[in-house]
Design a protein around this nucleic acid. Sequence first.
RNA 1: GUGGGUAUAGCUCAGUUGGCAGAGCGUCUGGUUGUGGUCCAGAAGGUCGCGGGUUCGACCCCCGUUACUCACCCCA
Length: 451
Amino acid sequence: MARQASLSGFTELLPAERVVELHVLDSLRRTFELHGFSSLETRAVETVGSLLQKGEIDKEVYAVSRLQADEDERGGRTDPQQLALHFDLTVPFARYVVENAGYLSFPFRRYQIQKCWRGERPQEGRAREFTQADIDVVGDGELPFVYDVEMALIAAEALAALPIGDFVIRINNRKLAEGFYRGLGLDDPTAVLRAVDKLEKIGESGVVAELVATAGATEEQARAALALAAIRTPDTGFVEQVRALGVEHPLLEQGLSELAEVIGLASRRAPGRVVADLSIARGLDYYTGTVYETVMVGHESLGSICSGGRYDALAVKGDRRFPGVGLSVGVTRLLARVLAQKLAVATRPVPTAVLVSLADEDGWAAADDVATGLRARGIPTEVAATAAKFGKQIKYADRRGIPFVWFTSVDDDGTVRHEVKDIRSGEQVPADPETWTPPADDLLPRVVPGD
RNA sequence: GUGGGUAUAGCUCAGUUGGCAGAGCGUCUGGUUGUGGUCCAGAAGGUCGCGGGUUCGACCCCCGUUACUCACCCCA
């Protein structure tokens, strides 16, 4: 039998790892629902036409077609009706909002946790099939700016509940950056941002060279752009620092005041978690204001684990506009690091808390009665399949991390005696199947800090 | 898409100019006639990624191919 090779970028976890993943997903869901977000799921496929805005062919998108589809049904890569797997959740959500606008109440708050697919070369933290956990608030025509603040706070709260250690949400504002560049006389903010974004990788001189080459900047303009990107403050101190650079533009002023509001309010609620970082260039495509990016402290090379921002017109229906602000948590990415470095581990890979042992082959029904009594009180229990030697039954439990083994025996006078053994300590005590309960810590698998 | 590395037991890996396919860990059995973990003894487990070539003979050398992996690009 030929071994089925693993597929690069399509990760499959072991049971103990899945416990950690479920913990992350449950935790995110809890936080999102605490903040009043409705759950939503959209289909896995969209048409290429709705996925790719400008009709350009994106090689990262996986196309979907029936194996037996004939040539013309299969369409071409240029056919906008061709089906494809979504590569994020924002675009499908925008389509959903437009389609269901009549049934939704705005501002509409939703969270969405689903798989996404991109055909990129995989690396740690970058898979071809991955899970994103998105939250967005979408308005009809208008969306109050305070949601930009709320997003940062929800992100801080959601991430703080995950076993990922310390993190920092870096926030910038695209109006600020674009206004600054225009005030400098640079007319291609996108190219400038793209170059500045590489600062950590290629260094200052590299960025200057790229700005001169691709953004039509003079060396002086490039230096000024770098000076802006160097600004990083945990409070609203960045405003003075930007003003000190002496550039003026209406868009810059608007960006400064927006970012100051986000940072001011967010740093009060979540001190140390947010920072104004004017080098953040995330979201070039559709973000128009606030942009967020989040790194795990000590794991900066992993990249952002939670990104998003404000968009003014992602969804448009006739002359109705649906502006929004949202965030994506990269569940697969952060989980990759958590699992690889054992930042958190499961206490056991199976739900089972108790294995009811079997003394003889006729005893299964009676053992199952014990198990049923335990399960009725919420205690995950399984029954041994054979009356193997007790040593083997204990070993079975030990290998799976099942903490307790239940023994039932019948005395000469017919008295039935129940005992439960904690196989970690070896302690074995009399127990009543109707009332015995394991310690709270042992009831279900838990996720605890690793080494 | 571009460039490097790797591919041998379930896992981690050795394998001598080219001469019988190996170790540790894990698994199973027994020592141990009904309570595991230690210890001892034994066993099972292989298309040496795949295809071709050179050779008396290939895990080893050559060509091709596929997969995995790291980096670049880009992004969650």
